[in-house]
């Protein structure tokens, strides 16, 4: 069976030490001011008046229905059979159409390479049999990575053991492959995915050019197919009468 990789984040085990973020920075040499992963600290007052802090380590959620892939005009964003949403640097032109498409804000334009950078689940490490850099370094072992299609994997065991949730809303439900455990606590809105205003060019392309073009070209094809058919019928009906004209 083909592997399908997922990441689990046990927020109860996360301590916001930023090890994952710096480990990723060192491993993939991300420039200062940018990071492929993050830990969000959310402070709020609970119903009982007590303060609360929740921690959400995050990164690309490697969605089943990744909108970034669909927003990418060049095919640089792609999904591997094992579920990893990856970026082909050789193709990416850095147009940033995929950036606002991601409701988890996982993509950014890398000024060093002028291409889009994102979490790859450390695919090059995983392919060599290593854990992702963030998982390997995680102090609380809050991050767990593995193959969900292997019933004996740690992720499969943990998923069966506890109640995990994904960061989805009514609005954004695109099959993320990143699971969170919060011990039953509701996930604050700050952490939830949000739809972003896409680039106007993208919207024009998607909602005007593309449909208009398809309808236009399609319509023309249909119309002229119709004309051709009519012509055929006409010819059958009026055999002989219009032979001269047809001969032309």
């Amino acid at each position: 069976m083909v592997a399908k990789y997922v990441m689990l984040a046990d927020t109860v085990r996360c301590i916001d030490c930023k090890a994952c973020v710096i480990s990723c920075r060192a491993e993939w040499e991300t420039p200062m001011g940018y990071s492929r992963d993050w830990v969000k600290q959310v402070e709020f007052i609970k119903a009982n008046g007590m303060p609360e802090v929740m921690l959400f380590p995050g990164r690309c959620q490697h969605c089943d229905e990744a909108p970034c892939i669909e927003a990418c005009p060049s095919g640089a964003a792609y999904k591997r059979e094992d579920g990893m949403v990856l970026q082909d640097d050789a193709i990416c032109s850095g147009c940033e159409l995929c950036v606002p498409a991601c409701p988890y804000d996982a993509r950014w334009l890398n000024p060093k390479t002028n291409t889009i950078s994102k979490c790859t689940f450390c695919q090059p490490r995983v392919d060599k049999g290593l854990e992702p850099a963030c998982v390997q370094t995680c102090v609380g072992r809050a991050l767990i990575f593995g193959n969900i299609n292997d019933p004996n994997s740690e992720v499969s065991r943990l998923l069966a053991e506890k109640e995990w949730v994904k960061l989805t809303t009514d609005e954004v439900n695109i099959g993320p492959n990143h699971y969170y455990y919060t011990a039953g606590e509701a996930i604050p809105a700050e952490v939830m995915p949000k739809l972003h205003d896409r680039h106007l060019a993208g919207k024009v392309m998607e909602n005007v050019v593309n449909p208009a073009g398809v309808i236009g070209v399609g319509g023309m094809v249909l119309a002229f197919l119709g004309a051709g058919v009519m012509k055929l019928i006409g010819r059958r009906n009026e055999v002989g009468t219009h032979e001269n004209q047809e001969g032309k």
């Binding site: 399908k4 089943d64 909108p67 299609n149 909602n207 593309n210």
Partner: peptide, 24 residues
């Protein structure tokens, strides 16, 4: 076989529905 993707009806709305495109 890998598990089939879970299709969510709400997804269409999210994508801004390129219905024109689907025809082709």
């Amino acid at each position: 076989m890998s598990t089939p993707n879970q299709f969510d009806p709400s997804r269409r709305a999210f994508l801004g529905a390129t219905m024109g495109g689907t025809a082709l």
